[in-house]
Lab assay of single mutants.
Amino acid sequence: VGDQVLEIVPSNEEQIKNLLQLEAQEHLQLDFWKSPTTPGETAHVRVPFVNVQAVKVFLESQGIAYSIMIED
């Protein structure tokens, strides 16, 4: 199991704000291929294997929908 690319769908401005804060966490080494800008629009982010669980827990705790787009 390696890195994953998640497709994330924020449903409101609050969730977009939370994702932008997540993007700013440099220690997570997230690679946003497509940043969140509009509710209902997908964002794509590559998550290093060591941080996959932490990111998924965060998304679930914020009620942000996501799916695994690419499993490496």
Rank of each mutant, 00 (worst) to 15 (best):
E41W: 10
V1D: 12
I8Y: 01
F49C: 14
L22E: 02
T42F: 05
D72F: 15
A43L: 15
M69W: 07
L6R: 00
G40A: 03
V47K: 00
V1K: 11
E71D: 13
V55A: 02
V52Y: 08
E23M: 15
S11Q: 10
V45Q: 01
F58M: 05
P36L: 05
Q62N: 14
G40P: 01
P10I: 07
H27M: 08
A65R: 11
L19I: 08
D72G: 08
S61Q: 12
A65N: 10
V1Q: 15
L22S: 02
V50I: 12
W33R: 09
L59R: 00
K56M: 13
K17E: 09
H27K: 08
L28V: 04
G2W: 12
L20D: 03
L6A: 01
E26R: 12
F32G: 02
L6C: 02
M69G: 04
E23H: 12
T42R: 11
L6G: 00
V55T: 03
Q15S: 03
F58I: 08
N18Y: 14
S11T: 12
S61K: 11
T42E: 03
V55W: 01
L30T: 03
A54C: 08
V45A: 05
E71S: 10
V45E: 00
Q29M: 10
P10S: 02
E7H: 15
P39D: 02
F49V: 11
W33C: 15
P39H: 03
I16S: 03
F32S: 02
L28Y: 08
E26L: 13
L20S: 05
F32V: 04
I64P: 00
V55C: 02
A54D: 06
A54L: 12
K17A: 10
E14V: 06
H44R: 15
K17P: 01
G40F: 08
E7Q: 12
I16H: 03
L30M: 05
V57G: 10
I68W: 04
F49N: 11
D72N: 13
Q25L: 11
S35H: 11
V5H: 08
E71K: 08
I68H: 04
E13M: 15
Q21C: 11
P39Q: 04
I64E: 00
P10T: 05
K17T: 11
D31G: 07
L59T: 00
Q53V: 09
P39R: 03
V57E: 14
I16M: 06
V50P: 10
H27Y: 11
Q29S: 10
W33L: 15
I64Y: 03
Y66C: 02
V47Q: 00
N18M: 14
A43P: 01
L20M: 11
P10V: 06
K34Q: 08
E13C: 13
V47E: 00
S35K: 14
E71W: 09
F32L: 02
V9Y: 15
F32T: 02
D3L: 08
L22V: 03
L6F: 15
I70Q: 10
S11F: 11
E71L: 06
Q15D: 08
V55P: 00
E71T: 10
T38E: 09
V1W: 12
L19M: 04
V57A: 12
L6D: 00
S35T: 11
M69V: 11
F49G: 14
N51T: 05
N51C: 08
E23A: 15
S11H: 09
S11W: 08
K34C: 12
V47F: 01
S67K: 13
I68G: 03
V1G: 13
N12C: 04
V47H: 00
F58Q: 03
Q62H: 14
H44D: 01
P36K: 02
A24G: 09
G2N: 11
A24I: 09
Q21L: 12
V47W: 01
Q21R: 10
S67N: 08
L19Y: 01
M69A: 06
E60P: 00
G63P: 00
H27I: 08
K17Y: 11
L6Y: 05
Q53W: 07
V52N: 03
L28F: 10
Y66M: 01
V50Q: 13
G40K: 04
T42S: 13
E26F: 15
I8N: 00
L19E: 01
Q53I: 12
S35N: 08
N18A: 15
V52D: 02
V47A: 02
I68S: 04
T37M: 12
F58C: 03
T37R: 07
A54S: 07
D72M: 14
S11I: 14
P10A: 06
I16A: 03
E71V: 06
R46N: 05
D31W: 12
I68Q: 05
S67W: 08
E7T: 12
F58Y: 10
H44A: 07
L6T: 00
E7F: 09
N18Q: 14
D31A: 10
K34W: 10
L59Q: 00
N12G: 04
E23Q: 13
L59H: 00
Q53R: 07
K17I: 09
V45G: 01
K34N: 08
L22H: 03
A65Q: 12
V9A: 06
A65Y: 11
V57W: 13
P10W: 04
E60M: 06
L22N: 02
L59N: 00
